[in-house]
Computed example of a mutant assay.
Amino acid sequence: MSTGVIRPMMGRDSQFFWDGTAAGELRIQKCNACGVLRFPPGPACPECHAFDRGHVVAAGTGTVFSYVVHRYPPVPGKELPIVIALVDLDEGVRMVGEVVDAVSDSGADVEIEIGMRLRVDYRTIDDELTLPFWRKA
């Protein structure tokens, strides 16, 4: 099971999200009491404080709100540089994720900008982990 990838924390508040990525779905937590969407997921609604959680399946599209190009230090399982973006999902929540195909082969040029449209894709790491990532729409 050693894949060289930094594994995310998985718990009862986020398991629905990871079950979704394994199924090819980008799931966002929804309060069943008041309908508010939230990411990252948590135990209680930030609006009405209810513990009645559910989820919706997102379209998997959004826009770049902000980004960084990570060049150093090394990241286990990644070839640098990598682009990490804060993505405004069309559903109204923000999510952090890696953007692939945004760096030239030489690593010198970055092809990403604020407002760029992105779509989610998935990479299966092993039987227990499928990670979402982003690419140009």
Score class of each variant (00 low, 15 high):
95 M>F: 13
34 C>D: 01
70 H>E: 04
131 L>E: 06
22 A>E: 09
88 D>P: 05
41 P>Q: 03
40 P>I: 10
89 L>Y: 08
23 A>F: 10
105 D>R: 01
45 C>Y: 10
73 P>A: 12
128 E>D: 15
45 C>W: 09
105 D>I: 01
104 S>G: 01
46 P>A: 06
95 M>I: 15
56 V>W: 01
73 P>I: 02
57 V>D: 07
4 G>D: 07
69 V>P: 06
137 A>Q: 00
9 M>P: 08
109 D>R: 15
33 A>P: 07
98 E>Y: 05
26 L>V: 03
29 Q>A: 10
123 R>W: 08
54 G>Q: 05
89 L>S: 12
114 I>L: 10
116 M>G: 01
102 A>T: 07
82 I>V: 11
110 V>I: 12
28 I>N: 12
38 R>M: 14
133 F>V: 09
78 K>H: 15
110 V>Y: 03
106 S>D: 15
118 L>V: 00
96 V>Y: 12
39 F>A: 01
62 G>A: 06
71 R>H: 14
132 P>S: 03
27 R>I: 06
85 A>F: 00
137 A>V: 00
137 A>R: 01
95 M>S: 09
131 L>K: 06
107 G>F: 02
100 V>L: 15
79 E>P: 02
46 P>K: 11
65 F>D: 09
85 A>R: 14
31 C>Q: 00
113 E>F: 05
2 S>L: 12
135 R>M: 07
89 L>H: 14
12 R>I: 11
25 E>T: 08
74 P>T: 13
59 A>S: 13
26 L>A: 03
23 A>H: 13
75 V>N: 02
32 N>Q: 15
129 L>F: 11
48 C>L: 10
15 Q>M: 14
96 V>I: 14
36 V>Y: 05
129 L>W: 12
119 R>D: 06
41 P>R: 03
46 P>D: 00
13 D>W: 13
